[in-house]
Nucleic acid binder design. Sequence first.
RNA 1: GGAGAGGUACCGAAGCGGUCACAACGGCGCUGACUCGAAAUCAGUUGGUCAGGGUAACCUGGCACAUGGGUUCGAAUCCCAUCCUCUCCGCCA
Length: 442
Amino acid sequence: MLEIQQLRTDLENVTKTLAKRGYVFPTELFNSLEAARKTIQTHTQELQARRNTASKQIGHAKSKGEDASGILAEVADLGDALKQAEIQLEEIQNRLQKILLDIPNLPHESVPVGSNETGNQEIRRWGTPRQFDFAIKDHVSIGEALDLLDFETAAKLSGARFSLMKGGLARLHRALAQFMLDIHTQEHGYTETYAPYLVNRESLLGTGQLPKFAEDLFTVHAGTGHESKSAESNGHSPAFYLIPTAEVPITNIVRDEIVPLQSLPLKFVAHTPCFRSEAGSYGRDTRGLIRQHQFDKVELVHIVHPDQSYIALEELVGHAEKILQKLGLPYRVITLCTGDMGFSAAKTYDIEVWLPAQNTYREISSCSNCEAFQARRMQARFRNEQGKPNLLHTLNGSGLAVGRTLVAILENYQNTDGSVSIPDVLQPYMNGLDQLRISRGK
RNA sequence: GGAGAGGUACCGAAGCGGUCACAACGGCGCUGACUCGAAAUCAGUUGGUCAGGGUAACCUGGCACAUGGGUUCGAAUCCCAUCCUCUCCGCCA
């Protein structure tokens, strides 16, 4: 959410900056609502002030045993007028609030301007893609040939865009998450957290997934015990939402809080499943583990002093990169352009890992500085040097998406005989196993 | 699921129809005194949010007693609904 003050005083610049990311600000609507708000709010507050003084006078008079009927008569029709004004004001405020909640964050000045992913800027590469002297397979073929990956059964259990992993692959998946958590807690100073996978509406409003992106989320309704009478069909609002990323519960830790200055920065890491409906992505990445309704992610969140957030963003990307370096997976880092950034971000770096079967780099992490955008929605504050509450800055980034990292390992570490080597750093997590290979029935 | 207690500022907590929300009383924070300095002690003081006005420090007013309704000239206080926390019982991985 942007600061409404900024819209009032600097609307021209704000709309210009928003236009860079393709957002058309409803200037006329906003201005007319603002004008109405101003008169109605002033009027309402005047009526309230009159009611307050009159009531106080009545109280004084009655306590002294004097006659208050004069003032009572004076105030008789104030109630109706006030109620009407309050209703009007609330309606206007709601409409303004709705506009405000729909406006994306302002891009930082360092963000390249562009309308889509072609405007993104590569800023560095690490590692050299391996040269294969045999015909390489993609991760689906590799996993299925090893009898460790089974999409058909997953479809039977749940439907499309779900996966079933077994044996060494399931273990490798677990190993990756453990490895990432260990590095981030032991080497990068994060606090490990375990958080709810179901969250309420307020949390999603706080981080910006709601109200605009409801169709991307899975909802959970409280059970009635009767399938036919499920609350869903009654049109009740959902009791919970499945988290699309751990960013939601973790960032909302500081919602409605005033954090003491000396406890900053807060750095949290969490390994959670993520649930996304992937509405609007039909036909894209339908094969394999790249785009699933359910996937695991290790998420990094920073809660920082506003002066520190761009330093923190560089650190955050570095922490995610470290994982890929330790795994020996080639990657590149790109700065998303204004048109390709997410709703809440002021600046985003994507890390893309090399996938040989696709002969390209694919997103494996997205690291964003949201500045005060989420903090303003959440009323997440700290007590500043002067002892006054100030909005925090929030950042989040994947460190990393576990499923996609698994894909990268399968493809980059595949061998000519169909086996897959396990990176050295993961072997301790695999009970010393150094390869995934055919072993029937296991 | 049953019974009870509770949700008031940064924290603890009093208030239980008007003169205690300009929120008592503690703590915390800040300022000053004492001290070489600190601790302790003593004194003072502030604390959320929105609007209007002002370059500004500030001024004026509104809102905020879990949330949303209701009763009333007036609600933290009375009534209704919902959420959450705690204690006990039951059930349970």
